[in-house]
């Protein structure tokens, strides 16, 4: 027997194991379908509301901003809640905690591997959004809109910022899903928190509201605010992750 002992080795092993557990689940489907829904909705809206053959550079920018806004104000927080619940729900539903904790793995390692997997799936979903956005833009050109790739390129560059800004929310949702087996709890938190994004995000109190960071990082009018969000978000995410990892053992092995 050659049990992985060092933390990086264990993390890699657990990451593989957590990825394997998602086989034949709806998680993979969510990564590919939820961004597509956003694009289909905005594509339909564009086609219904105006003559796309008259699309100007400003219209294109608005369309891509619509993509970014719908994703970061609404769909991404829900997506994070769903993904975290699914990854942790695998253990709650199937008594997987009992199996995993009776194996030689560290709880912090397991907690971290699940969190990293959620983060990577979130990044993948944001990239899929951009990819579907391109397809959507291509579809608009088929309906007569003049080709303009500039705004699309801007959204691509904002994907890493969006991802960084989503990390505090991701850690919070992960910690809630790790603790509670009932999917209603993390989903309720996500729905209620999402409702406050626009209002709090447009106020001076946005700094205290992690759900608004995604909006600030991608859509804030001023560069200073954007950069502030991109500094605060990873720092807060790291602090929250460290703190929540300390609590990870409670009600799991300690009981």
């Amino acid at each position: 027997m050659n049990t992985p002992t060092s933390m990086p080795q264990q993390l890699i092993t657990l990451f593989y194991v957590e990825t394997l557990k998602l086989k034949r689940t709806s998680v993979v489907l969510m990564v590919f379908v939820l961004p597509l829904l956003v694009i289909l909705f905005l594509l339909g809206l564009a086609l219904k509301s105006q003559d796309v053959s008259l699309f100007t550079a400003e219209n294109w920018q608005k369309w891509w901003m619509g993509v970014a806004a719908l994703w970061s104000y609404f769909m991404l927080p829900l997506f994070i809640a769903l993904i975290s619940s699914a990854i942790n729900g695998n253990e709650h539903k199937n008594e997987g905690w009992r199996l995993m904790l009776s194996l030689p793995v560290s709880l912090t390692g397991l907690y971290s591997a699940k969190c990293v997997l959620s983060a990577l799936l979130t990044l993948l979903a944001s990239l899929m959004l951009w990819f579907y956005g391109l397809l959507g833009a291509g579809a608009l050109t088929l309906f007569g809109a003049p080709f303009d790739p500039t705004a699309g390129a801007i959204l691509l560059f904002s994907v890493p910022s969006l991802w960084l800004a989503s990390l505090p929310v991701l850690v919070i949702q992960h910690a809630i899903s790790w603790r509670f087996g009932n999917i209603i709890i993390p989903l309720s938190v996500a729905v209620v928190a999402t409702m406050g994004i626009v209002q709090i995000g447009s106020s001076e109190f946005w700094v205290y509201y992690p759900w608004s960071y995604m909006m600030m990082a991608t859509l804030a009018g001023n560069d200073e605010l954007r950069q502030q969000a991109l500094v605060i978000a990873p720092a807060l995410a790291t602090a929250l992750f460290w703190l929540s990892a300390q609590f990870a053992a409670i009600n799991k092995r300690a009981g």
Binding site: N2, L14, N94, S102
Partner: peptide, 29 residues
């Protein structure tokens, strides 16, 4: 230790071989 506690804890979406590969990976087998 190898343990079986109460009802079996299994992942219904995996095949038997995939399920066992979890323990194999973690134990380095």
């Amino acid at each position: 230790i190898g343990g079986l506690i109460d009802a079996p804890s299994l992942y219904p979406n995996l095949t038997a071989a995939e399920f066992l590969s979890i323990g194999c990976r973690i134990k380095g087998l």
